[in-house]
Simulated scan of single mutants.
Amino acid sequence: MLEVALRHRYGRDGFALEAAFGVAEAGVTALFGPSGCGKSTILAAVAGLLRPDSGRVVLDGTVLLDTARGIALPPERRRCGVVFQDARLFPHLSVAGNLRYGQKRAPPGATGPGFEEVVALLGLAALLDRRPARLSGGERQRVALGRALLARPRLLLMDEPLAALDAGRRAEVLPFLARLRDAAGLPILYVTHALEEVDALADRLVLLQDGRVLAEGGVEALTARTDLPLAARRDAGTLLSCQVGGTDPGGLTRLDFAGGTLLSTARPEPVGTRLRLRIRARDVAVATEEPHGLSTRNILAAEITAISPGSGPQEVFLQLAIGPSKLLARVTQDSVSRLGLAPGKQVWALLKAVTFDHLGAAR
């Protein structure tokens, strides 16, 4: 368990940070928010790379920082593995040499995955003899992850590790990050402003704005809230945990969730694979009667549980319950009036199979 409470100001009239939150014993906690909201400042203070004006950081009962008591452990004693935007590999060492450097920094007696295990986990076997200059950006980040893990840290800190990569390289590295999350058994504090990374990796979310914590909690719960800045995004929507159930006669993949089944375009994952699906509010339509003769295959009985203001003029969010699962639909105020939509009304939620392009591995 990581406990963080920090206050810091850059200059007399500069940016001010005042944030407090907790991180679970294992899994990924994402610090999410726009550029300049304080994410990297928090990470630097936890790592010991920044001395805040005041604060307290405690990791599994060990006090890393307590300004009131004059405690501030140096970075090398905090046992935090840090991965930055740029991999910061040693250019004169091979991939194996960079990994061995991390291994040499592990404290005596510390437990964790060994060299061969990390190489296999991150798919580095074919790269061991190469120098960093001969690696792609995604490959360099995988080596940086391996080096950090081999140092046997108690906490992994990742400061936008995919920000410098293009979309293709990000897609290449994300599965390795998910495997690392599952295999490491460590708390991971992950800084990002990319929602797709939150969807794919995060167990918990700390939502930041202007140096303050707006909300913290489970990712699925926070994405369903319409009172947070996440709802103002055009890709706003809910996350739905589901499981690959097989293939229907038409070749579509069945995705089972608590409350029903969705059909998606064909997926490569085997039956039983757990996935997390972002259903964007803009992709959900509603009907007051069960529709027929549509190309849309996903037609689900739902109940409107609430109607809240949307992010644009004349827009509203319908909060829909499908069994225990929640969806959001972004519709116009005109639709609400014309269809007589109100909390408690039974409707049908319509989703095209081709819209499910935001899938990430679930825990």
Rank of each mutant, 00 (worst) to 15 (best):
A24K: 14
V23N: 06
G27H: 04
G27A: 08
A26G: 12
L17A: 05
A44L: 12
L17C: 02
A30W: 02
G48N: 01
A44H: 13
S40W: 04
G27Y: 01
P34R: 07
G22M: 11
A44K: 15
G38W: 01
V23K: 12
A30I: 11
G48P: 01
E25K: 14
A45H: 03
T29Q: 13
K39E: 00
T29Y: 08
P34M: 11
F21D: 08
T29I: 10
A45G: 04
G33H: 07
G33W: 05
G38I: 08
A26F: 11
V23C: 14
L49G: 01
L31Y: 09
C37R: 07
L50W: 02
P34V: 07
E25L: 13
E18A: 15
L17N: 04
S35K: 14
A26S: 15
K39W: 00
A45V: 01
S35I: 12
C37Q: 08
F21R: 04
I42C: 10
K39V: 00
C37A: 14
F32E: 10
C37E: 08
A45Q: 08
S40T: 13
T41N: 05
P34G: 09
A26N: 13
G22P: 08
A44P: 04
L17Q: 07
G22L: 09
A19S: 10
V28W: 08
F32D: 10
C37H: 08
T41R: 04
A20I: 06
